[in-house]
């Protein structure tokens, strides 16, 4: 498993496409729930987490299943949680849940890359 993280609009997906030969991407914003378990790559993973929370589903379960069933997947996700604590309870839950899940995914990943201005820094692997 590979994890690509970074702020919004940093060229993460482009970077991932160049680094890994992934042809088929699941888009976390719109893909069916099950698609991530067989996709070669997932981008906008944080949006997938948000959609699940909105629907009252448990994204931690999905992440655990992902680690078991799709061990070679490339995951691209925004790095959240570098701002002031949000006023809305849902926003607080969203960013913290995403953080905890990404910490688990990072633990399972053989490589973690943080992309800033389109430039990747390998922080694990």
């Amino acid at each position: 498993m590979k994890l690509i993280i970074g702020g919004a609009f940093q060229g993460k997906t482009e970077y991932a496409k160049n680094r890994y030969s992934v042809k088929q991407w699941a888009d976390g914003r719109v893909c069916p729930w099950d698609e991530i378990f067989r996709a070669e790559g997932i981008h906008h993973f944080h949006e997938y987490v948000r959609r699940m929370l909105t629907e009252g589903l448990d994204p931690a379960d999905a992440a655990q299943r992902l680690c078991q069933e799709n061990k070679d997947v490339v995951i691209v996700t925004n790095e959240l949680g570098y701002g002031v604590v949000p006023v809305e309870a849902f926003d607080r839950k969203y960013r913290e849940t995403t953080g905890r899940i990404c910490t688990k995914l990072a633990e399972q990943s053989s490589e973690v890359v943080r992309v800033i201005c389109g430039i990747g820094q390998v922080i694990k692997g």
């Binding site: 959240l80 949680g81 604590v85 849940t97």
Partner: peptide, 13 residues
């Protein structure tokens, strides 16, 4: 020793 540890929310710090 003083060690300052920083990070975002939910970062595992």
């Amino acid at each position: 020793m003083i060690h300052l540890i920083t990070g975002g929310s939910g970062s595992g710090k």
